[in-house]
Design a protein around this nucleic acid. Structure first.
Lengths: 123, 123
DNA sequence: CAATTAGTTAGCCGAACAGCTAAATAATCC
DNA sequence: GGATTATTTAGCTGTTCGGCTAACTAATTG
């Protein structure tokens, strides 16, 4: 079984923390785009966009297809689903108005109030 | 209408991009905690945790209750719901692609595919 | 082949980040 | 009041980030 790289939530959330990068993802949700198309809405220079794209790429959010001298980016939503999954565990906390009850009832997947939880294999 | 501060997605996603900060939120999902409790699982010094807490605070993710010399943090999930909302718009991209196509195709008179899909009436 | 087009890489700069130690503040206890 | 406890603030270091310009690579076109 080819084990895929596994989503790096640090990288994904960091990638989502810049408005230009979120904007690029929004464009890509409408289909693949070349770099100059992606750059068009913004006032920054191309190398800056290129850099944002490499951040998105490092987070696994975009893939590249080469077509001649044009590189088309397309969205890979898998890391988004991982981020979504992380947030989902807290969903009850904002959907349910009885937060205190929710916290007593134990949120699925969220570690219980025990102290001394172990850290995740260092690093 | 009291207009509330409005969630800053940049700050929220940035806050979520560090494992210690996500870990702190996980602890807080189990109820409010003092700083030294929050710090216990990690190998970093207290001022570092204090700083992470201020990042979380700036993103609106935690509130402080003072109780004597102890400050208890509690989770405010509203910014999480904003992040969740942003991601939700992409949900269709990673969830069952055929559902989407089917809904677009949907030829009248042709019996519905009766696939097993369907999330539970949303919530 | 030369010129154009599409994009990346290199390298600079200032600001922000993540960690640390030392010191300050603030409440509580003896 | 002085000591202890809980936590923050100040200030240092090294790294990463986000922008820029200049220069490079690669494909296409005249």
């Amino acid at each position: 079984m080819a084990k895929q790289p596994a989503v790096d939530l640090d990288a994904v959330f960091a990638a989502l923390s810049h408005p230009i990068r979120r904007g690029i993802l929004e464009q890509l949700a409408g289909g693949s785009r070349a770099v100059n198309e992606l750059a068009a809405p913004y006032r920054v220079r191309l190398p800056t966009i290129s850099r944002h794209l490499s951040v998105l790429g490092a987070a696994g959010l975009v893939r590249v297809d080469r077509e001649g001298r044009v590189r088309r980016r397309r969205l890979d939503a898998v890391p988004l689903s991982a981020a979504f999954g992380w947030l989902t565990r807290y969903r009850v906390l904002w959907e349910d108005r009885f937060d205190r009850i929710a916290s007593l009832v134990e949120v699925p997947g969220v570690p219980p109030p025990t102290r001394n939880r172990r850290r995740k294999t260092k690093r």
